[in-house]
Simulated assay, not measured.
Amino acid sequence: MSRLQAEHLYKVFGRRPDDAVRRLEGGASREELRADGTTAAVVDASFTVEAGQIFVVMGLSGSGKSTLLRMLNGLLEPTAGRVLFDDQDLTALSPKDLRSVRAQKISMVFQHFALFPHRSVLENAAYGLEVQGIPREERMKRATEALELAGLKGWEKSWPDELSGGMQQRVGLARALATDADLLLMDESFSALDPLIRRDMQDQLLELQKRLKKTIVFITHDLNEAMRLGDNIAVMRDGEIVQIGTAEDILVTPANDYVASFTQDVDRSRVLTAGAIMADVETALGAKTGLSKVLRTDQDVFDAAPATVSADTPIIELFTPCSTSDQPVAVIGEDGALIGVVPRARLLAVLGEPMLENEASHAPGDAPRDEAESDEGKVTAGA
């Protein structure tokens, strides 16, 4: 299982890029550099993608997300900073060694399908293995298995122009899977697809991830897609990462007004979970609610609760029980023990406007939460 780390990555285009990095580190703005004919595409980007995670980088066009992705596999050399994969510093490798790592350990799925029109679906899926020098019989076997994983069994002998856009993207995904690379980099891979096909591809990716547990970095400008796919999400603006957190972190405690503006059109009821909004039992059943008079023990809560749900239950499923009872919904952990409750007032509150981080930290009745780490339009809300 392979871990990816980006450490203080900068990418500057133009004259004297090293000097530009020093100026940025000293507090200079991108606008000041631009006046000198220099563009800072990525500024001091740091993050860690744990093995088996889907890490989504989200931002508007020009925010630096695709440039960041290309530094992760060495297609672009960072002006400053390091990329480590499996504890190996990719930025210190020779061109030959870097090509070897890319061929063996890293696969990329592009927005445009990049299929060879003169090769069959099977031959396209096997192309990465051909580059690796794998014998024909083995690469065809592995490519066939990858196409089946991607839902294209029976289409091996077809030509790319005989496939729909969604099916062509599945071939691109199969080509990445066939190499059995540990790291998948996906650059706006579904954005050229129609909405229904796009959702099917998201479902396919999530299903594959359950089975294969790859380490994935996924680039998108679509917030709903980011929240549906990402174990963690990095929001970029003007080359900088302005917040890293789960979908719930970003919805409930956006780092600033810029992040909050992205979340206003998101269906919070389908993204947030009971575990994200629950209050601890003592707080929720405090004297002010009057509930402590009748609910003194965990068993009392279980007996009175209109429903018992797990922490990962979407809050849309809490509407009915909360509307039919004054008692809070009980939230249980994997061992069946009570870990929190969702009072009706709390459910209604979180469906309102998102709170900035400093406001959320003082909200009454909230369970303690880890702090979230830390333009010209709005990210699209439809996936």
Rank of each mutant, 00 (worst) to 15 (best):
residue 32 E to K: 03
residue 33 L to T: 08
residue 33 L to S: 07
residue 33 L to K: 00
residue 34 R to K: 13
residue 34 R to V: 01
residue 34 R to C: 00
residue 34 R to A: 15
residue 35 A to D: 10
residue 35 A to C: 00
residue 35 A to G: 10
residue 35 A to Y: 04
residue 35 A to P: 00
residue 36 D to G: 08
residue 36 D to K: 11
residue 36 D to N: 00
residue 36 D to F: 07
residue 36 D to V: 00
residue 37 G to C: 06
residue 37 G to L: 10
residue 37 G to R: 05
residue 37 G to V: 14
residue 38 T to S: 10
residue 38 T to L: 08
residue 38 T to R: 13
residue 38 T to N: 03
residue 39 T to I: 15
residue 39 T to R: 02
residue 39 T to A: 14
residue 40 A to V: 09
residue 41 A to I: 09
residue 41 A to N: 04
residue 41 A to C: 14
residue 41 A to F: 05
residue 41 A to Y: 05
residue 41 A to T: 01
residue 42 V to A: 08
residue 42 V to K: 07
residue 42 V to Q: 05
residue 42 V to P: 03
residue 43 V to W: 10
residue 43 V to M: 11
residue 43 V to P: 04
residue 43 V to Q: 10
residue 44 D to T: 14
residue 44 D to I: 15
residue 44 D to P: 05
residue 44 D to N: 15
residue 44 D to M: 12
residue 45 A to H: 08
residue 45 A to M: 11
residue 45 A to R: 07
residue 45 A to G: 09
residue 46 S to Y: 12
residue 46 S to G: 13
residue 46 S to N: 12
residue 48 T to V: 15
residue 48 T to L: 13
residue 48 T to M: 10
residue 49 V to L: 10
residue 49 V to C: 14
residue 49 V to H: 08
residue 49 V to T: 12
residue 49 V to S: 11
residue 50 E to Y: 02
residue 50 E to M: 02
residue 51 A to I: 12
residue 51 A to T: 12
residue 51 A to P: 07
residue 52 G to H: 13
residue 52 G to V: 12
residue 52 G to K: 14
residue 52 G to N: 13
residue 52 G to P: 09
residue 52 G to M: 13
residue 53 Q to C: 00
residue 53 Q to F: 02
residue 53 Q to P: 00
residue 54 I to Q: 06
residue 54 I to L: 10
residue 54 I to W: 01
residue 55 F to S: 06
residue 55 F to N: 01
residue 56 V to E: 04
residue 56 V to R: 07
residue 56 V to C: 12
residue 56 V to S: 05
residue 56 V to F: 10
residue 56 V to A: 13
residue 57 V to N: 03
residue 57 V to G: 00
residue 58 M to E: 08
residue 59 G to H: 07
residue 60 L to W: 11
residue 61 S to A: 13
residue 62 G to Q: 04
residue 62 G to S: 05
residue 62 G to W: 00
residue 62 G to L: 06
residue 62 G to P: 01
residue 62 G to Y: 01
residue 62 G to F: 03
residue 62 G to A: 07
residue 62 G to M: 02
residue 62 G to C: 08
residue 63 S to K: 02
residue 63 S to Q: 08
residue 63 S to I: 00
residue 64 G to S: 10
residue 64 G to Y: 06
residue 64 G to R: 02
residue 64 G to H: 06
residue 65 K to M: 07
residue 65 K to C: 06
residue 66 S to M: 04
residue 66 S to R: 01
residue 67 T to S: 04
